[in-house]
Simulated scan of single mutants.
Amino acid sequence: MSFVVFDQETAKADIDGITVTPLIEDDSSGVTDRFQIVGKANSERTLRISIGNFGIKRLRLRIQPTNATTSMDGKIVYKNVVRAGQYGLQYSFSDMTKPQTITIKPNSTKDLTFKVKLPKGKINGLILGGFNVYDISGNSSGNANVPVWITDDNKPVGGILSLRNLGLDVIDKKPHMIVNLQNKEPGMMKNVIIHMTVKRKSWLDRFNLGPKEMVADLTYPKVAPNSRIPVDFDQNTTPIEAGTYVVKGAARSGKATWTFHKTYKITQDQANDINKRCKGLIYNKTTTYILIVCVLVSLIFLIFWAIWYSGRS
């Protein structure tokens, strides 16, 4: 089997002054955006990366092997720690090679070598790993990544979507409700179109005064193998409310389609935990106002009934 890497093209780097360049050994495939390994089980491969610091600050960088995940905007990212077994992942790239930490001075470069030991068992489909490069010195933000594709037979494999759960998060001090789909197959997906709705059940629904249905229509240009696909519902200034939520949706990729329908319960403790970490929330007083009106109507009724009853005595 052959081992292919791309030619000396700088990988995308969002760290100021930093360049990350995979070093070529064989460019016969013409692949220019990733390392590619097509190899036998239990074999070893060597990857070499050159990192340059053209900034004015001394940096301490971490080069962390991990697996690809899917971001909310449908991009392949390498920022999260991923372990074998998550989302059906057969083998984790972090188990095949070790991370490295380097200190690099301004106007200097360092070449790094990574020994990659392939799993003993057969690799099904595609393992989409990569190196996440980020600053741990606190002098710079952002990250760079170098993808590493690992396959046994180089045959394309598709993906299958399923509904995983309904989650809560705080992003930029705003509450977010996130429907998590998942691709548990070892195949990358492209142009995944998703329509998703979330609705909290309420007794006010019978009067058409209940919470509005939240709708998301999104297109994910790429979905990583064995990864979560987050569908984000930004609540902005609306706090999370406890209750039963109905999640419905459909997804399409090419000719394949999937439908989803499930209910989830959010407890008061879960809602409070999210809301207390947010700023500028505006609470809906509709229920309070309705109860006040009901009390007032009841009092008026009782007063009129008392007047009527006393008039008969």
Results as ranks from 00 to 15, higher is better:
3 F>S: 14
3 F>D: 05
6 F>C: 13
6 F>W: 13
22 P>Y: 04
22 P>D: 07
28 S>C: 09
30 G>W: 10
40 K>P: 01
44 E>H: 10
48 R>G: 05
49 I>W: 01
52 G>Q: 09
54 F>E: 10
56 I>G: 13
63 I>Q: 03
70 T>H: 04
71 S>K: 02
71 S>T: 10
76 I>D: 01
80 N>P: 01
81 V>I: 13
83 R>L: 12
84 A>G: 11
86 Q>S: 14
86 Q>R: 06
87 Y>A: 06
93 F>L: 06
93 F>I: 02
96 M>S: 08
96 M>T: 09
98 K>D: 10
103 T>A: 06
104 I>E: 04
109 T>W: 05
110 K>G: 09
111 D>A: 08
114 F>K: 08
114 F>D: 05
140 S>T: 14
141 S>H: 12
142 G>V: 09
147 P>R: 08
147 P>Q: 12
151 T>L: 07
153 D>W: 06
157 V>Y: 12
165 N>H: 09
167 G>V: 07
168 L>P: 02
171 I>P: 00
173 K>F: 07
175 P>D: 02
176 H>A: 01
177 M>E: 04
184 K>V: 04
186 P>K: 05
187 G>V: 07
194 I>L: 06
194 I>Y: 00
195 H>L: 08
198 V>M: 01
203 W>D: 12
206 R>W: 14
206 R>D: 15
207 F>E: 08
212 K>S: 15
213 E>S: 12
214 M>S: 15
215 V>E: 13
215 V>C: 06
222 K>G: 01
225 P>C: 03
228 R>I: 15
231 V>A: 05
231 V>N: 00
233 F>S: 02
244 T>C: 06
245 Y>P: 02
247 V>S: 00
254 G>E: 08
256 A>F: 09
258 W>N: 00
259 T>M: 03
260 F>W: 01
260 F>K: 00
263 T>S: 14
267 T>Y: 03
267 T>R: 01
270 Q>R: 02
274 I>R: 00
277 R>H: 10
286 T>S: 04
286 T>P: 07
289 Y>E: 04
294 C>K: 05
303 I>T: 07
307 I>T: 08
308 W>C: 01
309 Y>A: 11
309 Y>P: 03
311 G>M: 12
311 G>W: 09
